[in-house]
């Protein structure tokens, strides 16, 4: 009994550390004050500012578009790459796996800096083309897609593909209709990973983005250095909205996976 109480206290303390800042900030996003801990007067001003300031809206849409666009490219590239490498010779596999590992374990500062040096300094590509930025984000996330897909390929029943070919399917058709469905769960989690990586990135964006474009990360970092409290507190509102969205997403994910495991139990 005592043991259980100790465990609950430990979990509670950890949760307090993790959530207290987010929740207190969420509370004060509904206040008219820029100082946490001051008298609380309810106000929706921060949310109004967030949704009516073009600069803020541009930054949010820019971040989302970048995340979706780079995640789509990374998912296509990483998935096709994983399939191709999976069927290559052992030596090619080893090389690909090692090189694939580099952006995964590398510090984002180094990835961003080195891509900027290559594209902007050596090849003279303008940052305004968005090419260095997108290339940077794809380089960050495609290796994760590759790693999410590879285990699914290993688990796959390889005789099905052979059977499809024997029954007259073209390789491309068999790839689409036989292999892809079997690795789909890996592709989806790879895509989700790619989105979260791009949304969370600061370092690659800061070294490769056009000067006039901001992602949420680069914008927040600049805003905390500035003295515009109106913008600062509008970002609290943004933080709260993102928190709620992540919460909804987590709940949905759990419902889906419960349903899936129930189906499995029912099927068994």
């Amino acid at each position: 009994m005592k043991n259980r109480a100790v465990k609950c206290i430990i979990l509670f303390l950890a949760l307090t550390f993790i959530y207290a800042p987010i929740l207190i900030l969420a509370l004060y996003s509904f206040a008219d004050s820029a100082t946490i801990g001051s008298a609380f007067h309810f106000s929706l001003q921060n949310y109004v500012t967030l949704f009516t300031t073009p600069e803020l809206m541009d930054m949010i849409w820019g971040t989302l578009s970048l995340a979706v666009f780079s995640a789509i490219i990374a998912t296509i590239l990483g998935t096709i790459g994983a399939i191709g490498v999976f069927y290559s010779k052992k030596r090619a596999q080893m090389v690909a796996n090692v090189v694939n590992q580099i952006p995964v374990v590398n510090a984002d500062v180094v990835t961003g800096f080195s891509i900027c040096i290559l594209l902007v300094v050596v090849f003279g590509v303008s940052k305004d083309t968005f090419f260095p930025l997108i290339a940077g984000h794809v380089t960050l996330s495609a290796p994760f897609v590759y790693l999410a897909v590879l285990p699914k390929l290993k688990q796959m029943d390889s005789s099905l593909y052979e059977a499809a070919l024997d029954l007259g399917a073209s390789p491309a058709y068999a790839l689409r209709k036989v292999i892809l469905p079997q690795i789909m769960s890996g592709v989806i989690s790879g895509f989700a990973l790619a989105i979260t990586l791009s949304l969370d990135d600061y370092f690659i964006a800061t070294y490769t983005k056009p000067a006039t474009f901001d992602t949420i990360s680069t914008y927040v970092v600049n805003a905390t250095k500035g003295s515009q409290t109106e913008i600062k507190t509008a970002l609290w509102a943004l933080s709260t909205i993102i928190f709620v969205l992540v919460l909804i997403f987590a709940v949905l994910m759990n419902v889906v996976s419960n349903k899936r495991s129930d189906d499995r139990k029912a099927g068994a």
Binding site: A14, L15, I18, Y19, A20, P21, I22, I24, L25, Y28, I36, T196, L199, D200, Y202, I216, S217, V220, V221, T224, L235, W236, L238, S239, I242, F243, V246, L247, F249, A250
Partner: peptide, 19 residues
């Protein structure tokens, strides 16, 4: 416990900083 990893880290650190 792990959900905060999907919230942008600059926003999370801002929250912590205010506290």
């Amino acid at each position: 416990f792990v959900m905060p990893m999907w919230i942008n880290f600059t926003l999370r650190v801002t929250a912590l900083k205010e506290i």
